[in-house]
Amino acid sequence: MKKRVVINPLTRISGFMEIDVMLEQNKIIEVKTTGSIFRGFEQMMVGRSPFDAIYLTQRICGICSTAHSVASSLALEDALGVQVTALGRYLRDALHCCEFLQNHIRHTYQYTIPDYVKLPDVSSIFKVDHGDFRLPQKVNEQLANHYFESLRMSRLAHQMLAVIGGKAPHNHGVFVGGISTPPNADQIVRMKSILQTITAFIEEKMVPDVYLIAKYYDDYFHMGKGPGNLMSYGAFDRYKDLGTLYVDPLV
């Protein structure tokens, strides 16, 4: 017997998506996903000053806006034949890294953790009628505390971004050739100091929390499988002095 399950809204993804699943004897036989927002950003760029793309494309997405400013700058550099200095690239990538940190922390705690951790009864948004909650009470409590602690950490990541980017989300720092205003020693040491706090949280809490959840849900690793074809354009890669720090372009 076939059964159809539709999930919309798929909450906690920073956007709008529908999942439409067809089941037969408890096996998924077909899945459709639909992104359910259209604004037409490509067409918005037509006839506009090219530099405006760096700012306007950030408005595609609130949680990853810096990535769009970086992509626009790279495209403009390509079109204008601008060679970026090593320092310009480091600074722009450092700014981009701040957003990675913000994004990964929020993705882990605000967007993913509520599927595994029962959050305290302080607000209606944490209520959920059904779910697959398996964590022992003590572990659950610890991760719920980290949910709230993580909010401070993702804020700090955006603060670090704003130190050279002006504000976040939707920064004013990324530009053709690197970043718009060279940072001074005061700003650099401020970023390094914030980074230390965030790094400690990630190493001591966030990474262990992910492993902890993986332990209690190890059967999830064997449920379903994608085609296995993954592609990356690379990120923080192939620096002259440092090599690749994150990922090379690959398929």
């Binding site: 919309n8 809204p9 909450t11 906690r12 993804i13 509520p114 607000s123 209606s124 209520k127």
Partner: peptide, 13 residues
């Protein structure tokens, strides 16, 4: 008491 937020709420669908 925040009742609905697409980005934050635990419930879905």
């Amino acid at each position: 008491d925040l009742v609905y937020s697409n980005s934050l709420m635990a419930a879905e669908g």
